[in-house]
């Protein structure tokens, strides 16, 4: 497969997954808002600030907006073309990448992505957003699910599929760390509120944004306990949005691409990914909390970035052609 094509497929996977996860984050925050009493500006700010901080785009946000409230944060995360990580920017980028590899993806996948793009560009999208905002984000998630489902059901298991999965799972692992990290940024009114109604509501929201609410209750027939939630979202071997699950998929796909046997590595990406997977396989939630959840998640995000970077170097990086040099060489022949 062409290196350039692998690169586009990888980014197509990442961007569509990113768009979906933004929709998830936003939707849950909206639901949380419904549980509040006496909403004022200060409370709203406390409510929306963590969302911006968890995306890592807070600097960018405060360049364009003065205050974090429903309007500004939603606009920033959804329709703001200046924000490269808004839903619309992600969908545009996914589609641009898809356009470059249209010969590699199936007609159905392309049409799904294109439909989402056309929808977001249409006046209908704005109307739906104004009138039925939950439907709006549900629409984005649905298209993303359809896209992933089509990839499962229609794409041959060759290199292209592997690169798509690498992009998808890398992004998903990263976004799960960010969803979990949101709770770190959310302030409770006082220390006494730990374990109280608001605290529980916030943790439930975290579960919901990772589609993990049902999984949690199936696995831990118990109340909402923060340590268990962290355990599920970081270490679960079976829940498909947990960090460990995503990294395992990532590791499998990287080995599929190279053909290198498991437990060995043939390049830096495989080495880093294998090491991270071991850490997750043998880690415990007690260790996480003793290190500090936020610090731990930060470290995982860095590791994921390194894996992404070394995958790029191993397969997709094209040393730019030195045109003048090439021309000279060819003219001498």
């Amino acid at each position: 497969m062409l290196s350039r094509v692998a690169d586009s497929i990888y980014w197509m996977g990442r961007y569509i997954e990113r768009a979906e996860n933004i929709a998830r984050l936003v939707e849950v925050n909206l639901q949380l808002l419904l549980d509040f009493q006496d909403v004022d500006d200060e409370k709203l700010k406390e409510h929306w600030d963590p969302l911006i901080r968890s995306t890592g785009d807070e600097e960018h946000f405060f360049e364009s907006y003065d205050i974090a409230n429903s309007d500004s944060v939603l606009e920033f995360l959804t329709f703001d073309r200046e924000n490269p990580n808004s839903v619309i920017s992600c969908v545009n980028a996914a589609r641009e990448n898809a356009r470059m590899v249209r010969d590699q993806i199936t007609q159905e996948m392309w049409e799904t992505l294109n439909k989402l793009y056309l929808f977001l560009k249409s006046d209908g999208a704005r109307r739906m957003y104004d009138k039925a905002i939950h439907d709006f984000y549900a629409e984005i998630k649905e298209h993303s699910h359809l896209f992933l489902g089509l990839a499962e059901a229609t794409v041959s298991r060759t290199e292209g599929y592997d690169f798509l999965q690498v992009g998808t799972f890398l992004e998903r692992a990263d976004k799960t760390t960010r969803i979990l990290d949101i709770k770190y940024h959310m302030l409770l009114p006082s220390v006494n509120d730990v374990g109280g109604a608001i605290d529980v509501a916030q943790w439930i929201a975290i579960l919901r944004s990772a589609s993990a609410y049902e999984a949690y209750h199936q696995i831990y027939v118990t109340d909402v306990i923060p340590a268990k939630i962290a355990e599920l979202l970081i270490f679960s071997e079976t829940f498909p949005r947990s960090i460990r699950y995503c990294v395992k998929e990532l590791n499998d796909r990287l080995h599929d691409i190279s053909g290198c046997p498991m437990a060995n590595y043939s390049n830096e990406a495989e080495r880093l990914c294998g090491r991270l997977l071991s850490e997750l396989n043998y880690g415990s939630v007690e260790e996480v909390f003793s290190e500090g959840l936020h610090e731990y998640l930060d470290r995982i995000q860095e590791r994921l970035n390194e894996i992404g970077g070394s995958t790029y170097k191993a397969y997709m990086f094209l040393p730019p052609v030195d045109m003048a040099g090439e021309i000279q060489v060819q003219q001498q022949q």
Partner: peptide
């Protein structure tokens, strides 16, 4: 897509010893 062949841009190709190559993974 209909032919099942690669679509390439100029930067995907290089010529070495008067043979054309594409740069793959």
């Amino acid at each position: 897509r209909q032919m099942g062949v690669e679509i390439v841009e100029g930067r995907d190709l290089v010529v070495r010893d008067s043979k054309v190559y594409m740069r793959t993974t």
